[in-house]
Simulated assay, not measured.
Amino acid sequence: MAAKKSPANRYYSGPPSDHFDGALFFNPDGRPPARFADLLKWQFGGGRAKWPATWPSPYPQAKPDARIEGEALRLTMVGHASLLIQTAGLNILTDPVWSERSSPFTFAGPKRVNAPGIAFVDLPRIDLVLVSHNHYDHLDLATLKRLKESHDPLVITPLGNDAIVGRAVPGMRLGAHDWGDRIDAGKGTAIHVEPAHHWSARGSRDRRMALWAGFVIEAAGGKIYFAGDTGFHDGINYRLMAEKHGGFRLAILPIGAYEPRWFMAPQHQNPEEAVQGMKLCNAAHAAGCHWGTFQLTDEPIDEPAMKLEEALAVEDVQPERFRAMRPGEVWDVPAT
């Protein structure tokens, strides 16, 4: 169903809640996105590491099986926040981006430095797509159009994002949901839409008009937490996930796009915070994403993986439990 619109919000209108003031969404007890003046200070302040023009993955492009049945769980990294989750006979994509750039333009903006870990033509039949929010490195309309034409999946996304997708991809099957919603995905599997500490915008005049979220996949083999794009937020949402869901077989957590901290900390956690989050939400295993494909921030390309290794040692977490995944990498996640 298409989202309602109003003059105050071009994507959504609805009753106020603890994260919607009647016009815009916000992070409860959290921090809003930085001001435009802070953006200019960062952009012109120097300190950005130079990434290589290409940084090929050590893994070849994967050719996934058609289905992974039962309680088995297979995770394949495509790149950035795009991953293929296969379990319980379902094929689920998170924040799919196959475009060359994370940008509103095809000729400018952050360009990928490695090929997608799965060639688009090698995708198995996709059943569900989880889109966490509307930033260009997560909601890629060109990819959604291709998925509609080739797979016709159901897209599950937070409130307001359906207005963006529905206008650009007519006929796409869409479900727009609020934090706390539970969706029956079939085959004994459910999707929960959960809080994240972030923000949204496609341009300069639609800040916070669409909601952002993480997701929990409740399947026969255990629960999977895809945190989306999020700041650590004092661990509040991680504690909430542990309280609500008990724990997770796998957490998919962002570990990149975190420097400079004075600007990025409210919206993007760093590797040390990701390890704390893994522990707080009681995840047996974790996959690090949101790094090494598009340069969005200042840190060197390989720093997130190195910082993750250091943080795991400090927190006495075995390194095989938390992988900084590279495109094409396939992980058969152990049962818990």
Rank of each mutant, 00 (worst) to 15 (best):
H151D: 02
T76L: 15
W98N: 05
A142V: 00
P116Q: 00
R74F: 06
I92Y: 02
T157V: 14
N134H: 03
T94Q: 05
L93T: 02
D162G: 14
M77N: 15
M77W: 07
S102F: 14
A88D: 10
M172K: 10
A142C: 03
N161Y: 06
R182S: 15
D95K: 07
G186L: 14
V193R: 01
V121L: 01
I85N: 08
A190K: 13
H138A: 15
D152T: 11
L141K: 01
P104Y: 12
L123Y: 05
A81M: 09
F120C: 07
G166T: 14
S103T: 05
G171Q: 11
H177L: 12
A185Y: 05
E100A: 13
S200Y: 12
T76C: 13
V121T: 13
A142Y: 06
R125M: 14
D127M: 09
A108Q: 09
A115R: 01
I191S: 01
R202A: 09
D127K: 09
G117T: 08
L141N: 03
A108Y: 10
R74V: 15
L174G: 08
G79Q: 05
G171D: 12
S103I: 07
A190H: 00
I164Y: 04
A168D: 11
F107H: 04
S150D: 14
S103N: 08
D140Y: 01
I92F: 04
I191A: 03
A168W: 09
Q86S: 12
S200Q: 14
F107N: 06
H151S: 07
H80V: 05
I118A: 10
D152Y: 10
